[in-house]
Amino acid sequence: MIESILFWLGSALFIVGGVFDLIGAIGMVRFPNFYVRLHAATIGGIYGAVLPLMGISLMALGIPELPGRFAIAGASFVTAIVLLVVAPVGSHILAYAAHKSKSVEWSPVVDKLLEDEEK
């Protein structure tokens, strides 16, 4: 009973993650410049990667005949947590580098960082 609940809950998370990955990919194509695309990439990074990994860990716990299911579940869960901690560092470094090098052409409503740097 509890196993089938875990399995179906994990499958649901897995499928939801796939849908968000697809939407993130559409956003990547449609958005106009680097900074806005970064937000679409975040969709793929959190609900598109962390959530399916947690889904895999629940699915693995829900299949008793799977050999090494605790290893799969534990490794997926730890990877999900690590991804949640390190993913923002990557996004932040990309945005920081792009702003420092001024290599992105965009028309912001307001750019306080540039204003403060020019002061």
Binding site: V36, L38, H39, A40, T42, G45, L84, P88, S91, A95
Partner: peptide, 26 residues
Amino acid sequence: IMGSITNTPGTVVVDEKDDYFYVNWI
């Protein structure tokens, strides 16, 4: 705080200076 802001789609922390975060907002 920085991780939470950057992990929510729509906001990315670009820089930090003198108790201020500079946040790129969609």
